[in-house]
Amino acid sequence: MMFLLRREWLLSWRRRSELINPLVFNLMVVALFPLGITPDPDELAVLAPGILWVAALLATLLSLDLMFRYDHQDGSLEQVATSGTPLAALILAKILNHWLFTGLALTLMSPLLGLMLNLPISLMPLTLLVLALGTLVFSTIGAIGAALVAGLRRSGLLLSLLVIPLYIPVLILGTGSINAALAGVSFVAPLSALAALACMALALAPWVAAAALQLSIND
């Protein structure tokens, strides 16, 4: 497992210029909202949680396509599948790696973007926490979608169609936590539900994604 993680980490690091793209995309999407809706700081503060989440969701979608692409193209997926290493382990490594380079990076960006949207600074720790959890679920569920379309040549838009409905609960719980804190009420309930979702997704998704990936390998 450590070896798989190290391999993923190295592969991602060698392609770091590609990893910047989702982050830049995130910044640009966030910039669209004040220009498109209103530059008024008070109104932006109300919209900020939703904007941050939608932008992070879209940026994650953009990066999912690459999760299995290179490994599928150069045949290393088949190598792993025939080597006796469980596919689920490889997928878990890919999920954690994807989260590290995309989800966590997006999360770390969020305070800066939050400032631009006039989100109160007192909410930043909570925002960091829920985004970290939420993007972990994004990477995990996204792995299933990416595995399903791994064998297809043009899969970007299809992948979005498959995965967005499954992301909706995360979006609701994530923005729900921050909005609850913004309104001054307890945010424990949505936050715990989000954490439970993360645990469940992390435990189940690698197996489902492995079954899906097996299909495109056998193909």
């Binding site: 299933i144 399903l148 379309v149 064998g151 297809l152 079954a211 899906a212 299909l215 495109s216 193909d219």
Partner: peptide
């Protein structure tokens, strides 16, 4: 619709 190979399309849909 996107997966051309019948069997693959069936299994992927079932998983979804």
């Amino acid at each position: 619709t996107a997966i051309e190979q019948q069997k693959l399309a069936d299994k992927a849909t079932a998983i979804l």
